[in-house]
Amino acid sequence: MKKISFLIFFSVLIIIFSLLFFKSKGSFSSVDSGVTRVFQPVGMVFVNSTGWIKDLFSNIGNIGNLQKENKELRSRINELESESARMAVSEKENEALKRELNFKHVSGFETITAQISFFDPTNIRESIIIDKGANDGVKEKMAATAEGFLIGRVAEVYSNSSKIILITDPMSNVPAQIPEVSATGIVQGQVGIGLTMNQVPQETELKKGQAVVTSGLGGEYPKGLVIGKVENITKKNNSIFQTASLRTLIDFKSLERVQLIKE
């Protein structure tokens, strides 16, 4: 019994510390959103319960016909829901393809489009495996984009597949700049946080919402690819640099396709 108490206590402590950490990082709004999402259906049931009980009692004498009608309606609802889901998927794909096509047209880059096969099994490293490899013209160090935003770089190439290290990976370093204030820095992935831009001179006036793009320094990434936007700024006394946490403009976890930029 003591062991179970200790285990429960320890688990609760771990969860509390984890939540405290994320709250301190200012990302607790997702918890609020999550709680709302969980409780909303139950709340709606409570709100609608008065009408439902009233209808139930008034129709109790006609229950046989109602059951038949209910069965038919349920079947029809299932059909419509299925159709609606298919349309939503098609619409999402259509939007993504439009953005990809627009990026290719505006940037003038020659690209190779590939499908994502696997995501990294742990959340500590951030990588993906795609279905195009050396046979399709993929080469190491090619920049990878999705819907026009930089997402990573090809790290390993096999004959029919490749591994891409995402910019959110802790081993990733991307020379970047904030064109609005002509500041440069290095964008790095941080475990559990996402992206941060380091080595930005302290005197630069950073603001939330400023766009961060690749600087092209070092020649590893093409210049001008959008990385994300400034979210929070951290300034420390006695330091010549400041740090900014960035928000990516696309959800990396929901990606399905990527474009590799040919050199």
Partner: peptide, 18 residues
């Protein structure tokens, strides 16, 4: 390997374990 020690990684490990 990345020469970038942050406490967030440690907290992340505890969260993943939980």
């Amino acid at each position: 390997q990345s020469k970038n020690f942050t406490l967030s990684g440690f907290v992340f490990s505890i969260g993943q374990t939980a």
